[in-house]
Design a binder for these strands. Sequence first.
DNA 1: CTTAAATTGTATCTAAAGCTACATATTGAA
DNA 2: TTCAATATGTAGCTTTAGATACAATTTAAG
Lengths: 149, 149
Amino acid sequence: MPRPIRKSTAAPLRPPAQAAESFRRSRRDRAVETAQDYVEAIADLTVSPGEARVVTLARRLGVTHVTVNRTVARLQRAGYVRAKPYQAIFLTEAGRKLAAECKRRHETVVAFLRWLGISEKIAELDAEGIEHHVSPETLAAFERLLRKR
Amino acid sequence: MPRPIRKSTAAPLRPPAQAAESFRRSRRDRAVETAQDYVEAIADLTVSPGEARVVTLARRLGVTHVTVNRTVARLQRAGYVRAKPYQAIFLTEAGRKLAAECKRRHETVVAFLRWLGISEKIAELDAEGIEHHVSPETLAAFERLLRKR
DNA sequence: CTTAAATTGTATCTAAAGCTACATATTGAA
DNA sequence: TTCAATATGTAGCTTTAGATACAATTTAAG
């Protein structure tokens, strides 16, 4: 009964494709977020308590050791970590580089939120979600503001 | 060979659990992000071109009509939309409310990024990812700054 | 040196979100 | 009114990320 409303027979293809771009990026981001969280946590744990083990990672990330296991295997395939059965997990050069970038970006986002007057706790919480979606341009804008504060 | 390094026999449980909180929230958020993107898109399309159809939504969100179909079914189970086979998709009262909240938040984030000097295009792109992770506190801080600009 | 506890690994399930390929329904135009 | 094009639906595959239950290994303590 109710017929679809269409502006023309030839459906518009350009404008919608452009509008979809931000959604696509947002989704694609999700695939690397986990990797970033893991390498950052591994880098932390390698400093203290001295090495990254499966259970320690699981506690830090709030998941079971099974999830950690599978994800670490994937990160190894992707070339970010080295891991052998029943041993500690180490970052590769690529992993260390990624971790450093993430750490810097995370700290910038937290500092920026703190500058806005957000409490330490909320800033940490929000940053964890936000940091993965901040473009270089926006990160630069954050840093600019923090410098001239 | 290499033995795990442990500070004490009784592994610390409190501090790590607290650290894991932000990761858990960030992950939990992901589950509702899709719902928010969909209801916002449906609300838009209901205004123009007049109704939300499966293909239109698919083009807007940059996915196939199959994905839209399955997700719309889930949103219906969740009580956000009404949808019957081969007909347009409508928001329920709950869906309209959620869409309005998302729209307002999205616009605030974009306006804030624009205020920081970010270009329209990048602001839109970043906002799409960031908006889902902005707490009420942080949103309020954005609005405060925009008011006294 | 044995053994209980902790850690790590494996098998298997679930759910979300993406896809292609194919089937069915609807619309609009000849 | 038929029919081709468009829209919608369905079947089945993939990946990611979570889980429980159970098996195997390692560590630490007696």
